[in-house]
């Protein structure tokens, strides 16, 4: 199988359950050839850049730091390399490639090269699709009682990992949520005014 064919295959989430071990190992070797992002184990530099931008669009810098400052991309790389099973990681990376395919089709360039408005337009589509997929997955898992280790939809995975990576980082925990490991006080039921 040619590299181009593999990438095409991976970009099409629909065929992923049929991804053969052969195709998968080829994907891995292609991927290994591209890996040049220093310190990262699963994402190459282009994938890392795309993940970093999407994460920051989900949880942007405001008066507090956003996902990029919290290095959510590094957490996502760790999960892809060491926590997800191979099929789930492949599904994530295929979804990431699909983002570029869509932006190429819509705007004639890769996602990272799009304008902020273009990126937001595509993100809205992805988020709407993820909402539908989430409901379908919940229904299916309620029947099978076998929950998957991650959302089946790419953007669902991306959002869940971004939130987890951000709010469990020191920045997210201390700066955004104002939490401390040892609370300054404890009480059962207090009015929020007066706490601030």
């Amino acid at each position: 199988m040619e590299r181009r064919e593999v990438l095409k295959l991976l970009a099409s989430a629909a065929v992923l359950p049929a991804l053969t071990p052969d195709a998968f190992s080829m994907f891995r070797s292609i991927h290994a050839g591209l890996a040049e992002a220093p310190g990262l184990k699963a994402l190459n530099s282009h994938q890392d850049a795309t993940v970093t931008i999407i994460a920051e669009l989900i949880l942007p810098q405001t008066d507090t730091p956003g996902a990029k400052a919290a290095k959510v991309n590094e957490f996502i790389d760790l999960i892809l390399a060491e926590w997800y099973d191979d099929a789930t990681t492949a599904r994530f990376l295929a979804g990431l490639a699909d983002v570029d395919q869509r932006s190429e089709k819509l705007f004639g360039k890769q996602f990272v090269d799009c304008t902020n408005a273009q990126q937001l337009q595509l993100m809205k589509v992805l988020d709407d699709e993820a909402a539908v997929a989430r409901k379908q997955q919940a229904t299916a898992e309620a029947i099978s009682r076998k929950p998957a280790i991650a959302p089946l939809n790419f953007f669902g995975m991306m959002k869940k990992l971004t939130l987890l990576g951000y709010y469990t980082s020191q920045v997210g925990f201390e700066v955004e949520l104002h939490k401390s490991i040892i609370p300054s006080s404890h009480a059962g039921c207090v009015a929020i005014t007066g706490v601030a």
Binding site: L57, P60, G66, L120, D127, G156
Partner: peptide, 21 residues
């Protein structure tokens, strides 16, 4: 409920982040 609820909700961006705060 805490920030975990965000994974099951639509939305992203500034308003989403401020809501989860």
């Amino acid at each position: 409920e805490g920030w975990e609820r965000g994974s099951d909700m639509p939305g992203f961006g500034v308003d989403f982040k401020n809501m989860l705060k």
